[in-house]
Amino acid sequence: MGDSSSFRWSELVVVRDGVRLSCRDWGGSGPDVLLLHGLAGHAGEWDATARALREAGYRVLALDQRGHGNSERRPEDVSRAAYVADVVAVVRELQLQRPVLIGQSLGGHTALLTAAAHPELPSALVLVEAGPGGSNPDVQAGIAEWFASWPVPFPTREDAVAFLGGGKRAVGEGWASGLEERADGLWPRFDADVMVRSLDDNATRSFWDEWAAITCPTLAVLGQGEQGGIIRDEEYAEMVRLRPGLYGVSVPGTGHDVHLERPGVLHDLLTGFLD
């Protein structure tokens, strides 16, 4: 199992309360790093980043979060607390030593909440297009509508790349690599209703108290392109006000999927911050 690069990953499985959690373990003997993908994503989105960090001397794992990829597809509990408990279980079961938590979008939100609830666990926190946010009662309807627009099954990988990338091939490739090939075409490895339920908490509340409680060094990486990212100026300003020591960087020419659009730039930002 793995890819054709000089480093190959193997699958590690952790079971928590009967829920199967699959990790890509890239190996390495340096400081531990745990990568968390966003909503409807998969661990493979991080392959370029994982390889680069592994080459830089880190021990790297990427988690398929519950409801996604090779992990349990239809877990009963998809609360924010369940996602956090999964991260804690993976860290403890695999004996990671104060890992750096790096997450994009909802994965960044999971990392944020983990760092807040378990300050002893991470050595550092990196949020890629993620923040404490505010309650958004319309978010679930918007996400459900987006999933309903997917013309599944995709007849070919090229069709999937074109649709999911929105004109950005690197983004489309990242999303398409997470699809499951069946006899009639390519299908998502998640169920839309599970994804919508995963946003129950985000639809009703913000997480500013949790943000203020974080004590470890934190880097926020934001998209800065024509469409921009999801972290607005007002939210970022409040993040800085509550935690003046925050490191923040905007990456020009990117949107929400910074890790797919500019993996080399992201790697330089990560290693510079961690060093």
Results as ranks from 00 to 15, higher is better:
residue 24 R to T: 04
residue 69 G to L: 04
residue 109 H to D: 07
residue 242 L to T: 05
residue 194 V to C: 06
residue 221 V to I: 15
residue 18 G to C: 09
residue 135 S to P: 13
residue 175 W to M: 14
residue 260 L to Q: 07
residue 179 L to N: 04
residue 257 D to G: 00
residue 255 G to A: 08
residue 96 L to K: 03
residue 152 V to I: 15
residue 174 G to V: 04
residue 217 P to N: 06
residue 181 E to Q: 15
residue 228 G to L: 01
residue 101 L to S: 02
residue 56 A to Y: 09
residue 123 S to T: 13
residue 176 A to E: 04
residue 152 V to F: 06
residue 176 A to F: 01
residue 247 Y to S: 15
residue 125 L to I: 05
residue 117 A to R: 15
residue 12 L to M: 07
residue 53 L to A: 12
residue 173 E to M: 07
residue 132 P to K: 03
residue 98 R to G: 04
residue 202 N to G: 07
residue 113 L to I: 08
residue 76 E to I: 07
residue 5 S to Q: 11
residue 126 V to K: 02
residue 55 E to Y: 06
residue 162 A to S: 14
residue 175 W to S: 07
residue 259 H to M: 12
residue 93 E to H: 14
residue 21 L to H: 08
residue 147 F to H: 12
residue 145 E to F: 05
residue 14 V to N: 04
residue 96 L to S: 10
residue 221 V to W: 01
residue 20 R to Y: 00
residue 3 D to E: 12
residue 62 A to E: 05
residue 1 M to L: 09
residue 38 G to S: 09
residue 258 V to S: 00
residue 49 T to G: 09
residue 241 R to I: 00
residue 225 G to L: 11
residue 215 T to Q: 14
residue 190 F to L: 05
residue 226 E to Q: 13
residue 48 A to L: 14
residue 136 N to T: 05
residue 147 F to Y: 14
residue 139 V to Y: 03
residue 2 G to L: 01
residue 10 S to E: 14
residue 151 P to I: 09
residue 141 A to N: 11
residue 93 E to D: 15
residue 76 E to C: 04
residue 51 R to H: 15
residue 267 H to P: 09
residue 104 Q to A: 14
residue 90 V to Y: 09
residue 202 N to I: 06
residue 223 G to R: 03
residue 229 G to A: 05
residue 98 R to F: 02
residue 245 G to I: 03
residue 21 L to P: 04
residue 67 G to E: 07
residue 78 V to D: 06
residue 243 R to M: 01
residue 158 E to P: 01
residue 178 G to W: 05
residue 159 D to W: 04
residue 57 G to L: 10
residue 203 A to E: 11
residue 244 P to E: 02
residue 24 R to V: 03
residue 161 V to P: 08
residue 106 L to W: 08
residue 75 P to I: 06
residue 185 G to H: 08
residue 127 L to N: 08
residue 254 T to P: 00
residue 144 A to V: 09
residue 258 V to A: 00
residue 48 A to R: 15
residue 95 Q to A: 14
residue 138 D to K: 11
residue 36 L to M: 13
residue 160 A to G: 04
residue 179 L to D: 09
residue 44 G to H: 13
residue 9 W to N: 10
residue 40 A to Q: 07
residue 73 R to I: 11
residue 80 R to A: 15
residue 201 D to F: 08
residue 141 A to C: 05
residue 148 A to L: 06
residue 56 A to E: 14
residue 172 G to N: 08
residue 161 V to E: 11
residue 237 A to M: 04
residue 166 G to A: 02
residue 137 P to Y: 09
residue 59 R to L: 06
residue 18 G to T: 11
residue 256 H to N: 01
residue 4 S to L: 12
residue 183 A to Q: 12
residue 7 F to N: 06
residue 196 V to Y: 11
residue 10 S to Q: 14
residue 246 L to K: 02
residue 106 L to G: 00
residue 124 A to L: 06
residue 62 A to C: 09
residue 53 L to N: 12
residue 177 S to G: 15
residue 127 L to H: 03
residue 233 D to W: 03
residue 257 D to T: 00
residue 177 S to F: 00
